[in-house]
Amino acid sequence: MAGTIIYLEGITVSFNGFKAINGLSLYVDYDELRFLIGPNGAGKTTLLDVICGRVKPAKGRVIFKEDIDIYEKQEHEIVRLGISRKFQTPAVFASLTVFENIELSLRQNRGVFASLFAKFTSEDEDIIYSHLETIGLDQKARVKAGSLAHGEKQWLEIGMLLAQDPELLLLDEPVAGMTKKETEKTGELFQAIAKSRSVLVVEHDMEFVRNFAKRVTVMNEGNILCEGTMERIQNDPKVIEAYLGRGWK
């Protein structure tokens, strides 16, 4: 599918006068794997917060698909629209099993009474196991999520996002704390996901970005510095200054 899945226009977010994001505009296409990089404090995480409804911008608009204004929606409603968010530190349900973690994430009627009388079908089980296979945790289905290794927790959370069957995934440093091999696998997983969904990844691991990014957006001081292929970005003098300038001057 072609076209734009999410439009951010003139977004400004300020925390007590400090402008974390300053008049930023960004467009992400359907089925695109987009990377968002930038030095610390550039506003990357805040940008994800704006899209998933955690932070309401002081100015600007966020439009999902053609005409859904995110501003009026609460976080859980935004999730139901098809936007899923992964956090920087993996957030999983530690005292539930891996299987149950995925079960609760399934796209289903998520009202209070619906979950009181929810029936568990063998179809649900099949779907859950297929997600578990995707993230390589099918052997650990009955293990408590709290006892997983850090990298496995990251994967579990990604699996939970997939179970939500979203159209747009927002991933905040998904490979942090992963081994090189795990990182490699995760990158391949993202490329597979992006065949039918849009993925927006904030990442610090430059090697990871270099290996898997087609299009990269660089942020600095609350705005977009430049956008393009990794190659173009690496040679952009503005980017070099933003990354190296502060430390060297």
């Binding site: 998933c52 609460q74 976080e75 859980h76 999730v79 139901r80 899923s84 968010r85 956090f87 957030a91 999983v92 349900f93 530690a94 005292s95 539930l96 609760l104 994430s105 796209r107 998520r110 979950s115 709290g146 959370e157 939970m160 939500q164």
Partner: peptide
């Protein structure tokens, strides 16, 4: 365990 994760799994 994680109220935020529940919220961002589509529950209120």
């Amino acid at each position: 365990d994680s109220e935020d994760r529940v919220r961002f799994s589509g529950y209120d």
